[in-house]
């Protein structure tokens, strides 16, 4: 299973890419395969302030709905509008085209709670 080294991961099977003061987030290869064909995503509104672990989006497949939690606190500064018409991009390209939203990081120290690729791999095996 693919899990790029340059990303951070959460126990909710989300990935985070830190780009300066901003964080981009999406769901992992593992999460998309568990969900199956993704049919809809409810994206957050930009400018919204979120705390770590708040629900920021909901991803739906035919038989499941899964909440996406903010891995870090901050302000939503961008959402992937392409997902509105093509939510299946998350299945096809979870780490690239399937990114969900961009958060302006409020508390950089919260990054300490995230896992590295190696740690996430171990976490997956333990699940």
């Amino acid at each position: 299973m693919m899990m790029p080294d340059d990303l951070k991961y959460t126990k909710d099977h989300e990935w985070v890419r830190i780009e300066g003061s901003e964080a981009v987030l999406g769901i992992t290869e593992h999460a998309q395969s568990e969900l199956g064909d993704i049919t809809f995503i409810e994206l957050p509104e930009t400018e919204k302030e979120v705390n770590q672990s708040d629900t920021v989006a909901t991803i739906e497949s035919v038989k499941a709905a899964s909440d996406i939690y903010a891995p870090l606190s901050g302000k939503i500064v961008g959402v992937n509008e392409l997902l509105k018409d093509a939510p299946e991009s998350i299945n096809r390209s979870p780490y690239k085209d399937g990114w969900i939203c961009r958060i302006n990081i409020k508390n950089p120290e919260e990054q300490d709670n995230l896992m590295s690729a190696a740690e996430y791999e171990k976490f997956l095996q333990g699940e």
Binding site: F40, E60, S61, V62, K63, A64, A65, D67
Partner: peptide
């Protein structure tokens, strides 16, 4: 559109 419903979304 069953993901709106209680048997999937439960309390949500």
């Amino acid at each position: 559109l069953q993901t709106r419903e209680q048997h999937i979304r439960r309390e949500k």
